[in-house]
Design a protein around this nucleic acid. Structure first.
Lengths: 234, 234
DNA sequence: CGGCTTCTTGAAGATATTCAAACCCAGTGG
DNA sequence: CCACTGGGTTTGAATATCTTCAAGAAGCCG
């Protein structure tokens, strides 16, 4: 995992200002002058699949904005089993705990090669204090995280494995009708089932012709069939 | 469900100021002057078990602080099955969606006779705008809600039914070692199992002498045994 | 080409659901 | 007072669903 600083103190604010993705991010509502409040460099990080951004229980020193890729937030049970609690895609924010002075509540691990911005805690704290224009986005991000958490519980932890997988695919499906899956281990950890059963469920959806594999872990989805299976399995 | 207004416009602020529970609530950090910003009456509501505070999808017109009792937040799946997403006890806040201008994401229903304060949306909006002292508590409440949501997923939706029930009881247990359960239907909706299986799980915990019923749905908990069962069932 | 990991599949056993019937208890009305 | 009723609970038995263990297949990398 390599870090490449994108700005030196006091000079690099233009990079945030010019960011093509800014309208998706935490900084969407900031005004040009607000960027002068950024008094520490914001690193832009590229990492490969499997990289650990931070670990559960560790002191929260920074908040992350995902630019490209996919990041999982994982919690572990005493017996060692893991559960994937949330998936974060481009524009999403990891590490909101920073704001309430709490240690990280999850481990954040990249599922795909990803690129992110690392915003040090003092920057967030200062922005919170000195501009009113961050609050709205923060609230929206808390709400989005909570909404996804609740959705995960009702949609991905309720019903039979086949239904859950169908619903997950509907979440993951892009506009073009394709979805990228990940390892069966992670699939299991998302749906609360064993890796073997995850494998069987994928095979069964294929048999139902609800999905078909285009390339390694890339699937074309038949949305209508997935929806049918998601509601009442056949 | 009867409503009893506790203050008229512009006069009732003393009630919030004097509230014995205020240190637990959203208004914990407000200073005396801030209460003058409250320009609409805050109703104090008493309701019986089963009362609906608001319904999923409805316009969010108010935020609620639970004073006494227990409230469930429920989501429904297209097929009609319900899932209890969160439990809210004294001091907790329901309806945070108000702040991001979103419709209610759940239905809020009292599980026990409860008493709550209903804070109209305009009051929250004005306080957000005109005092910086609400933000901190709001963030903390978002965080608490998210933390509970995540915990519910890892602890109450993972593993076998007996383990989940044991973990739930550990959450519900008071300082005196007793816990109040609710209907088997609701238990099932919390743990993601059928009511019949919930019933069997309760019976089995009793056979293990991990709990014993004191009175109708009031149990004495053997914390050590519950913890043992919660980790690896025997 | 090994050697490694991950995925897939089979089969046995564990766990949960469903349906049905019995039960308990509180409230009602004869 | 007691039988009756209706809701929730408990229990049993048959079935469906998932886990676990084990072995084979497929992909990846040196």
């Amino acid at each position: 995992m390599k870090r490449r600083p994108i700005e030196a103190i006091g000079t690099g604010t233009a990079r945030c200002l010019d960011c093509r993705l800014r309208h998706l991010t935490l900084f969407a509502d900031l005004e040009p002058g607000d960027f002068n409040l950024i008094n520490l460099p914001i690193d832009e990080i590229d990492c490969e699949a499997g990289s650990v951004l931070y670990s559960a229980g560790g002191e929260a020193t920074a908040i992350f904005t995902i630019r490209v890729g996919l990041v999982k937030l994982v919690q572990y049970l005493p017996d060692g089993t893991q559960r994937i609690v949330r998936l974060l895609g481009p524009g999403a924010t990891a590490g909101l705990e920073v704001i309430v002075n709490q240690p990280y509540g999850h481990s954040a691990i990249a599922l795909q090669p990803s690129s992110l911005c690392r915003i040090p805690r003092p920057v967030i704290e200062r922005l919170c204090r000195e501009t009113p224009r961050l609050q709205g986005q923060l609230m929206r991000r808390w709400h989005a995280a909570l909404h996804e958490a609740d959705g995960r519980l009702t949609e991905l932890s309720t019903g039979k494995a086949l239904q859950r997988l169908a619903r997950l695919l509907l979440h993951l499906a892009q506009a073009d009708g394709t979805a990228v899956l990940f390892s069966r281990e992670d699939l299991g950890a998302m749906l609360g089932i064993s890796r073997e059963h995850a494998s069987r469920a994928v095979a069964e959806l294929r048999r139902h012709r609800a999905i078909s594999e285009i390339s390694m872990n890339r699937f074309r989805c038949d949305i209508a069939r997935l929806e049918a299976i998601g509601i009442e399995d056949c």
